[in-house]
């Protein structure tokens, strides 16, 4: 499993991550980011792309 952490103090809810890994990240109706804190290893490439496109660099994979 991959464990994901988004620093919600830093996240500006831009939703760029949503396009790279839609099964992991979503923007809810209140414009707030929601995400799965733990996902299958098969999603690693998607999660890394989401990390790359986050303007706030708020997403991390926690070892």
């Amino acid at each position: 499993m991959i464990k994901i952490d988004v620093d919600m103090a830093v996240c500006q809810h831009y939703g760029q991550c949503v396009f790279e890994a839609p099964t992991v990240f979503t923007l809810n109706a209140d414009d707030k980011l929601e995400y799965l804190a733990s996902v299958d290893d098969s999603l690693l490439a998607e999660v890394e792309s989401a990390i790359d496109v986050c303007p706030m660099q708020a997403i991390r994979i926690v070892e």
């Binding site: 809810h13 396009f19 923007l27 109706a29 414009d31």
Partner: peptide, 11 residues
């Protein structure tokens, strides 16, 4: 300006 989720379908 704001409306971040509403912007996504336009993208």
């Amino acid at each position: 300006l704001g409306m971040k989720a509403a912007l996504l379908p336009y993208r």
